[in-house]
Structure formats: structure tokens, C-alpha cells
């Protein structure tokens, strides 16, 4: 990318999310969530299903409201979708009627006025090259495999060189091998950019491999329970490189234990 702008810094302070209006019946989905993500950092949110990690990432992206607390990006409170945001959705969410190229070009919509046609085309082409989809630029999404769709979704999110990249379980629906390859590619892409990334996953290995820090969430009500710093050297090229790494194993076990504790603590049936 030609322009290297600083990644966004996120501050989540005492955020709460309630459903239901009437007093007493309100359902608290998130309570007292605190999270600080520095510029250029890669932070994963992990936790059992129902812990509100998707809700939290949607709030950071301005796609869902919260009922108390504050979320600020570079010091200004989130009202609506923040500027220079890239978002990768669970199932790629490509427009079926647009070719891969046209889908990726959507990512430039916000800054379209500042680019000439050739510049825009050049950036889309470069992004397609980066995710290995150059040959498939003119295909429709239904002609692509799941991994290729998610590559296209990633290209759409990255093409504007966003300050903030939010990824909501982007690899959750992929088969194990495609998933490993995309994790490695993502690690490479993100390490070469200054983008701040928040990544939701329930895959502890994935979180440890990709992240600078892992925020472990617990459920009912959802909150950030502990933030684990992944003090593994970068670049971490290759997932297999971490397989026999003792420190990686320790971190993985630690995070996994935190997640499992929370699961066991929950009653299996109401008393």
C-alpha cells in the first residue's frame, strides 16, 4: 500500500449492553467491559459462545448500540460506523451479483472521490494479487470455494488501507487446512501493515498464533475476564513453527483453561 497511515487506537470503558426495556426483566449481555487496543496492535477476543464477543466487535464497528459506558476510537466516541474501517464478516458476505473485483472495489467506496479510476483499479488489482485472487477477479462469488470467498472479503476490507480492521470469526466456517493457510496469510499481511486489528474467534490456537494480546471473555454476563499478552517473537511464520514451541503451548493452555473454567462454572441446568 502506498499510504501508511497510523492504526486506530481503541478504548472500551465500562461498556454495558442490556436487552429489554422494563426494569427487572432486562437481560444483561455485556457488563463492565474494558479493553484498550493500541495503534497497530492485533488483539483477539476469545470465549465460549454466548459471551458477547460478536456483540462487542459490532459495537466497536458502530454496527450495534451499547447501553452504558463508552467506546472511543482515537479519542472520539463511536457514533455510527467509524471512518477508515475494514470489516470481515463470518461468511464473507459478498454481494452475489458483483464479480470478485466489483466486490473488492466496494471497499474503496468511502475514499472513492479521492482516487482516479486508474488508481482505484490499481489498488483493487494489487489487493487481489495480495490475497491470490488475481485469476478469479471476474468470477461471481458462487463460483468460488469458501476459502476464496473469505480471501475476497479480506481484500475488500483491506483495499482502503484501513486504520482499523475488525474480523468476526472470519475463518470459522472453513475446513482445517484452508483455515491454517489463511491464518498464515493473514499474519503476513497484517505484519506488513500498520492496521490495528480486533479478531473474534473461538479457536485458541488461532488467537495465540495471530495476536499480540488475547482478551478472554466470560459469559452471562459477558465481560473481559483476563487479557493475556502473547510474548512470542514475530514474525511467526508458519503455524507448525509454534507446534513445538514451549511458550506457545503454555499460552495456549493458559487461555484454554480460562475459557474452560468459565464453561464449567456455568450451571448445566437451572437450579
Amino acid at each position: 500500500m502506498t499510504t501508511m497511515q497510523a492504526g486506530a487506537a481503541i478504548d472500551v470503558v465500562a461498556v454495558e449492553k442490556r436487552y429489554g426495556q422494563r426494569r427487572g426483566t432486562a437481560n444483561v449481555a455485556l457488563r463492565d467491559v474494558n479493553l484498550n487496543v493500541q495503534s497497530g496492535e492485533f488483539v483477539s477476543l476469545v470465549g465460549a459462545s454466548g459471551c458477547g464477543k460478536t456483540s462487542l466487535i459490532r459495537m466497536i464497528g458502530g454496527l450495534a448500540p451499547y447501553t452504558a459506558g463508552s467506546i472511543t476510537i482515537d479519542g472520539s466516541p463511536v457514533r455510527g460506523v467509524p471512518q477508515r474501517l475494514g470489516f470481515v464478516f463470518q461468511d464473507a458476505a459478498l454481494m452475489p451479483w458483483r464479480s470478485v473485483r466489483q466486490n473488492v472495489a466496494m471497499g474503496l467506496n468511502e475514499i472513492a472521490k479521492t482516487l482516479s479510476k486508474q488508481e482505484a483499479r490499481g489498488r483493487v488489482d494489487a489487493q487481489l494479487e495480495l490475497v491470490g485472487l488475481s485469476q478469479f477477479a471476474d468470477y461471481y462469488p458462487r463460483q468460488l470455494s469458501g476459502g476464496m470467498k473469505q480471501r475476497a472479503g479480506l481484500a475488500r476490507a483491506l483495499v482502503s488501507a484501513p486504520g482499523l480492521l475488525l474480523m468476526d470469526e472470519p475463518f470459522g466456517a472453513l475446513d482445517a487446512f484452508t483455515r491454517l493457510r489463511l491464518q498464515e496469510e493473514l499474519a503476513l499481511i497484517v505484519s506488513e501493515s500498520s492496521t490495528t486489528t480486533v479478531f473474534v474467534t473461538h479457536d485458541v490456537d488461532e488467537a495465540v498464533f495471530l495476536s499480540d494480546r488475547v482478551a478472554v471473555m466470560s459469559a452471562s454476563p459477558g465481560t473481559v475476564k483476563e487479557i493475556v499478552t502473547v510474548d512470542l517473537p514475530r514474525p511467526r511464520l508458519g503455524r507448525q513453527g509454534l507446534l513445538d514451541n514451549r511458550r506457545a503451548a503454555e499460552l495456549r493452555d493458559h487461555v484454554l483453561r480460562l475459557v474452560m473454567e468459565d464453561q464449567e462454572a456455568r450451571p448445566s441446568r437451572p437450579a
Partner: peptide, 29 residues
């Protein structure tokens, strides 16, 4: 129209009009 596609429209700042003509209408074809 899948909610995720509406979200895509919001993230990439499509106008309300373009969400209709560019997302909802093609989805309905």
C-alpha cells in the same frame, strides 16, 4: 436481504439510496 449484506453497506458507507438500488434490489431479482 441478508442482514450481513446490509452491514456491508453500512461499513463501506453506501447511501440509503444505494443500499436499496445496490443491495436490496439486486438481492430481490
Amino acid at each position: 436481504t441478508p442482514p450481513a449484506l446490509i452491514d456491508v453497506g453500512r461499513v463501506y458507507k453506501l447511501s440509503r439510496w444505494r443500499v436499496i438500488t445496490g443491495v436490496a434490489l439486486p438481492n430481490a431479482v
